[in-house]
Design a protein around this nucleic acid. Structure first.
Length: 858
RNA sequence: GUGGGUGUGGCGGAAUGGUAGACGCACCGGACUUAAAAUCCGUUGGGACAUAGUCCUGUGGGGGUUCGAGUCCCCCCACCCGCACCA
């Protein structure tokens, strides 16, 4: 038995070794402003929250990005691939409360641990650019940006009804309220009036919407989600005068997208929080009771689903400006105060919900939209939504619904009863949080002078270290001295703002900071001009709206304030799927970790007790379900490359991947197989190409070069699983090609050399190890150019083509590539002669080097 | 409700309108071994028959376009995701 057959790849020794070599060679460091003429490529993965340990989702995310980074480097790009930490946020405070640790030490200890874990994965990151958002050097620059936004009119302070999370004791943005509950605590959100800072994202709503069209390398569905979130709609504000004013209110304004159906009006309904509803409640006990009932109604999805459409007739009437007729005013539980004007006009003809409401309360239903003028239906239980022609509507009658809208708006504007308006669902971004572990808002409140910017020479406003978490709420409020400052304008006693920024701000510009992370100003223009936009951003779909929309807004606001010159931060976006795993429960229904479970042909049992285990659904890895696999343990047992190879190989990266032990073992087997192959081929090294190469050797060379082409194409299109398959095939072909002629040995050597280069972006350590054995004279594979397929070798000399009769496969023939049609057809006809017997050929289809199809009839 | 996506062997998945099931996993059979591990080789969509072979059938269902459809078009079904009392 020779050495090559027993050789095993010792990843535990090799991986740290190659990581050190890369570090020594500075393979992955970039310059803020490079001088060369290589094209730039900025690869970024969404930076992690330093929770303490990396999880498989991180492994997948950063492996995907790393493949791109390494591949682009080999393709000759100057690559920026940085890493940092999204380090502010609640968990650090919770840890502080629970463990008496201070948030900063807790966070930095987690960072140190996770940095080590990421480094063991062999990601080609430029660690010289690392920062954490909780570094004063970072958040101080963020404070500068905020103050510039303020100067530019992009910041407002206003008393606003905010979403108050009673458990986390903080304000939440609309985006952070999910089904009426806090996105983190899950507590029912209350409405509360507070003075808050807002960023005027709504100023950018039209741009943010239009900009989506320029993001060609974004997933369609992310663009759609953002489009829906921004929620553009066009319609009209219509003023309905009250027949009798109530509490000084003389009219109700309604926003509608269907001014063309105003003649079909049946009622007007206002939200329970609407001023008219409140005015009525002053004197009407029934209304007061109804409003109270609405307020107690849940806003969860389930509650909305089942909630009855209910109304309360106020007895008031409004005048429809187009018809001149009077209609009743209702308070309705389904009308939302924070969309449009908080009031609607009901047109049962064209809206199912209005129809249901009208039927329930016996309100009139008149038909104003019909399929055609001659086909006016009677309305039963179903409303006639959709386009058509307007009927029974005075001057609008006969117009299509599309034509009637501008006509109705024109008339409303003419008579001064309304105007065309554009409405957005997007709200301004409330950024104040009553939290300690966040970026302090750099503002000083003076009774005499009002809120003032902290002067530049006092930045950064640093968080105090000596805080107590004994009381609920914001520790900054309880600090004895931190908030006591003097007013920068009058010098009098003043109070420092104790709110901190929403942590989404921290992640809204970090990609720009990475271009010049040590700059004395937030950005260095030469650096951001060179590197931005991010060419490829990689992260989870869960950030499709919040983070990506905020970052897009921030970039535009930074462009306006001169910090960057691009409008869109991320030219390409890739959203990867989750990492899932089977879940396990013991007989008592308790969740079990995968390592506690032994699986055999008879089923699953508990490793220690031997009791049966219930194998549950395949779900996203989560601590609560205990279906997690620790990357550290996997790297220890199989090595980083095996983990990387597995997450790439199993399925397309945009889909969820199921982590399986057998899959990992398969990946590990391939690592060893490839290593043995390389060791064996290195022993028969043939670098010089023989003059003539034919037969099997030529076939192998052709496959090698086809693999170059195929892997290149697969990596370009994020089809990493396909790239993996092609590498398996080539590896099999090399080890299958036996013989010791010079030409074959050369072909085998070339194949192994190429495979080392192609595999290196995915398994960088193994790539180095085998490349060092094959081509020790060339140094690191990380510094090698990407191989190019020889076009001559991509041309096959013989092809197997299908022969069909009436479109059904009846045989195959092997012919020289590019053979003349007559010869191919003759060979094909001979091959299927028995099928053709007794039939006459009507037509012969010949697609060169592809297929022959005979169309026959008896 | 609304917008989008997906549907291919036991499983994950391949497949510029041109031989469906590449590649991996699993399974089964074999080699090596005292044995195991490791490794290597081979079979495997379903079905029928005259079983070294031949034929039928097969990409959620139904139509259509085409010499030829997993792929294009229309209708339907199922599942997944996003948004949602949005006027």
């Amino acid at each position: 038995m020779s050495d090559t057959e027993t050789a095993r790849y010792d990843f535990a020794q090799a991986e740290p070794h190659w990581q050190e070599q890369w570090e020594k060679a500075g393979c992955f460091t970039a310059l803020d402003v490079p001088s060369g003429d290589r094209p730039k490529y900025y690869v970024l993965e969404m930076f992690p929250y330093p929770s303490g340990k990396i999880h498989m989702g991180h492994v997948r995310n950063y492996t995907l990005g790393d493949v791109v980074a390494r591949y682009k480097r080999a393709q000759g790009f100057d690559v920026l691939h940085p890493m940092g930490w999204d380090a502010f946020g609640l968990p650090a405070e919770n840890a502080a409360r629970e463990n008496k640790a201070d948030p900063a030490s807790w966070t930095y200890a987690n960072i140190a641990n996770m940095r080590g874990e990421l480094q063991r994965m062999g990601f080609s990151l430029d660690w010289t650019r690392e920062f954490a958002t909780c570094d004063p050097e970072y958040y101080g620059q963020q404070q500068k940006i905020f103050l510039d936004f303020w100067k530019a009119g992009l910041v407002e302070r206003r008393a606003a009804s905010v979403n108050w999370d009673p458990v986390d004791m903080t304000v939440l943005a609309n985006e952070q309220v999910i089904d009426g509950r806090g996105w983190r605590s899950g507590a029912l959100v209350e409405k509360k009036k507070l003075s808050q800072w807002f960023l005027k994202i709504t100023d950018f709503a039209p741009e943010l919407l239009a900009g989506l069209d320029t993001l060609e390398r974004w997933p369609e569905r992310v663009r759609l989600m953002q489009e829906n979130w921004i929620g553009y709609s066009q319609g009209a504000d219509v003023v309905f005068p009250l027949a009798e004013p109530v509490a000084g209110i003389e009219s109700v304004t309604v926003y509608t997208t269907r001014p063309d159906t105003l003649f079909g009006m049946s009622f007007l309904a206002v939200a329970p929080e609407h001023p008219v509803a409140k005015a009525v409640a002053e004197t009407n006990a029934g209304a007061l009771k109804f409003i109270a009932e609405c307020a107690s109604q849940g806003t969860s999805e389930a509650a909305i689903e089942t909630a009855e459409k209910r109304g309360f007739a106020t007895g008031l009437e409004v005048v429809n400006p187009l018809t001149g007729a009077k209609y009743p005013v209702w308070i309705a539980n389904f009308v939302l105060m924070d969309y449009g004007t908080g009031a609607i006009f009901g047109c049962p003809c064209g809206d199912q919900r209005d129809l249901d409401f009208a039927r329930k309360y016996g309100l009139p239903v008149s038909v104003v939209v019909a399929p055609s003028v001659d086909d006016v239906p009677v309305i039963g239980a179903k409303a006639l939504d959709g386009a058509g022609v307007i009927v029974n509507s005075g001057f609008l009658t006969g117009l299509s619904t599309v034509e009637a809208k501008p006509a109705a708006i024109a008339e409303l504007e003419k008579i001064g009863a309304g105007k065309g308006v554009t409405n957005w669902r997007l709200r301004d971004w409330g950024i104040s949080r009553q939290r300690y572990w966040g970026c302090p808002i750099p503002v000083i409140h003076c009774e005499a002078c009002g809120p003032q910017a902290v002067p530049d020479d006092q930045l950064p406003v640093k968080l105090p270290a000596d805080v107590s978490f004994e009381k609920p709420g914001n520790p900054l409020d309880h600090h004895p001295s931190w908030s006591k400052v003097s007013c920068p304008v009058c010098g009098g006693e003043a109070r420092r703002e104790t709110d901190t920024f929403d942590t989404f701000i921290d992640s809204s510009w970090y990609f720009a900071r990475f271009c010049s992370p040590r700059a004395a100003s937030p950005t260095k223009l030469a650096a951001v001009n060179h590197w931005l936009p991010v060419d490829q951003y990689v992260g989870g779909i869960e950030h499709a709206i919040l983070h990506l929309l905020y970052a897009r807004f921030f970039t535009r606001a930074m462009e306006k304030t001169g910090y960057v010159t691009v409008k869109e931060p991320f030219a390409g976006l890739f959203t990867q799927g989750m990492v899932t795993h089977e879940s396990y429960k013991d007989v008592d229904g308790g969740w079990l970790y995968p390592e506690q479970v032994v699986k055999s042909a008879e089923g699953a049992t508990h490793r220690d007790t031997g009791l049966p285990v219930v194998v549950g659904r395949i779900e996203k890895m989560s601590k609560s379900k205990r279906n997690t696999v620790d990357p550290g343990a996997i790297v220890g047992r199989y090595g980083a490359d095996t983990a990387r190879w597995f997450v790439l190989s199993d399925n397309p990266p945009e889909r969820d991947v199921e982590w399986t032990e057998s899959g990992v073992q398969g990946a590990s087997r391939f690592v060893q197989r490839l290593y043995r192959l390389a060791v064996s081929v290195a022993g028969e090294r043939r670098v010089v190409q023989p003059a003539v190469i034919a037969g099997e050797a030529k076939k192998l060379r052709q496959q090698t070069h086809r693999t170059i082409a195929a892997v290149t194409e697969a990596l370009e299109s994020f089809a990493f699983n396909v790239a993996v398959a092609k590498l398996y095939e080539l590896s099999g072909a090399i080890s299958g090609a036996s013989g010791d002629t010079d030409e074959l040995l050369f072909a085998r050597f070339e194949g192994a050399d190429i495979i080392a280069r192609l595999v290196a972006p995915m398994m960088p350590h193994l790539g180095e190890e085998i490349f060092a054995r094959l081509r020790p004279e060339l140094g690191l594979v990380a510094l090698q150019p990407w191989p190019k397929a020889d076009p001559v070798l991509l041309v096959l000399d013989e092809v197997t083509i299908a022969v069909q009769v009436n479109g059904k496969l009846r045989g195959t023939i092997i012919i020289p590539a590019g053979q003349a049609a007559e010869l191919t057809l003759a060979a094909a006809e001979a091959a299927v002669a028995s099928v053709l017997a007794g039939q006459s050929i009507v037509k012969k289809i010949h697609v060169p080097d592809r297929i022959v199809n005979f169309v026959v009839k008896p």
